[in-house]
């Protein structure tokens, strides 16, 4: 069987399970909305302040929503040791990583599609004119978060302190994503020329490529006892 159809099957499996209960998506979306609201309570920004605050609010919200989704990702594999079963299939075992990461990315992007307009409404900023560069930065950032997050999710799920361990592992390692994401978003919203944002985009792209490849290579080493 081809690699692509194996990954597609893995995503189909996670998607079917998720759409039946909608646990993860609901939790992520509600949490993201709540944190957007709390930020506005905390800062009650004027429209002018909102432009400078929004990038930080957006990325903190995304990072936490992603953590929430990622922390559930391997729980459904754990109960009946299904990860073992996945490793017994005659496909390249690294494809399990790609399948899980792709499903996680899909969930995160769905939540982003919801949270972005909500944030625009709450903060009163017109995001539409900036949509294309913004979407690019968010897509690259999400790939990065999910690329390392999937590795750490597989790790933390088998420990006693899993809910705590995942964010603690993820945030220092993903700091280039958060830093570049916030700064690039700020640059875009401030209407700076795209050339000024380019270094951040480049860091995001390098991070993505590096950690998708690393995750692909290292995943079986991680699982094999």
């Amino acid at each position: 069987m081809g690699a692509l159809s194996a990954v597609r099957l893995l995503v189909w499996k996670d998607l079917t399970l998720e759409l039946r209960t909608k646990e993860i998506l609901t939790a992520m979306a509600v949490f993201a909305l709540l944190s957007a609201v709390i930020f506005n309570f905390a800062f009650s920004p004027s429209p002018a302040q909102a432009v400078t605050l929004l990038p930080g609010m957006l990325w903190v919200t995304l990072a936490f929503a992603a953590t929430l989704g990622l922390s559930r990702s391997f729980v459904l594999e754990r109960d009946q040791q299904c990860l073992e079963a996945l490793r017994l299939f005659p496909t390249d075992r690294s494809l399990i990583y790609l399948g899980k990461a792709a499903a996680n990315l899909l969930f995160l992007l769905l939540v982003e599609a919801l949270i972005l307009p909500a944030m625009a409404v709450i903060s009163g900023i017109a995001l539409l004119p900036h949509l294309l560069p913004l979407a690019l930065v968010m897509l690259l950032g999400s790939i990065g978060l999910v690329a390392v997050g999937t590795i750490f999710s597989a790790m933390s799920v088998n420990t006693r302190i899993r809910e705590v361990l995942l964010p603690v592992l993820l945030f220092p390692i993903a700091s280039p994503v958060l830093i570049s994401g916030v700064k690039a978003t700020a640059g875009i919203l401030a209407g700076r020329p795209l050339l000024e944002v380019l270094p951040g985009v480049r860091i995001l792209a390098v991070f993505d490529v590096m950690f998708v490849v690393l995750g692909y290579v290292i995943f079986e080493f991680l699982l094999e006892e």
Binding site: K13, L17, R20, Q80, Q81, C82, E84
Partner: peptide, 9 residues
């Protein structure tokens, strides 16, 4: 020891 089955499928 485990069924390798997904309870939600």
């Amino acid at each position: 020891h485990h069924s390798y089955l997904y309870a939600g499928l």
